[in-house]
Amino acid sequence: MRQGIRRRDFLKTLVAAGIIGSLGGVAKLLPYRRVVRPPGALVEEKFLSQCTRCGQCIQTCVTGTLVPCSLGEGLLIWGTPRVDPLRAPCEAVAGRCEISRPCVENCPTNALVYVEPEKVKMGSVKWIKENCIAYRGGECLVCYEVCPIDGAITPRRGIPVFHSGKCIGCGRCVYACPPEPKALYLVPDGERRIETTR
């Protein structure tokens, strides 16, 4: 029986450590889907490097819109928060979270930072007209009624028109959209992310 480390074992494990370490580095090249992040998220690269996947934001979210990303969205973003408008909308603008945001306040690593409500833009909404009640001739403008932003959704002859430049991606319209399957879904297109941590 021997105590201590033999040189051969040490070298073997050193090589193993190097290989595994660089494998971890290669993990960066794995593909992942772009998802809608909570308001005030850093740019994706910085966000992924600072998020510990601890779940504070998800558990403290007032509305319950934040969910952890699943494996299908990519190994690299597994467990990181995303906005799921099917569960609830995000109320960072014209809602309960304008002034104090639990997700931001509880983030231990500043992967989420506070931004003023007028600067929040998480993404935009996409319209599937085949599913839309109004497009098929019904009476429905629920998305227009719940939208907190002036001019993001405008009705034209009873049919909603979506302006992705003004849409902030809060998901209220998606949450409220009555048909099944829904005529609206949220995408991170046009999102405004934070470059530096203050």
Binding site: D9, F10, G21, S22, G24, V26, E45, C51, T52
Partner: peptide, 27 residues
């Protein structure tokens, strides 16, 4: 017969975290 490799494991984790710009082991 094995040597003590936990310090090397820590180094591995930190090196790969640095290279991947990602808390690798946390996942």
């Amino acid at each position: 017969r094995w040597g003590i490799t936990a310090p090397l494991a820590i180094i591995t984790v930190l090196v790969s975290s640095f290279l991947a710009r990602l808390p690798v082991l946390c996942v």
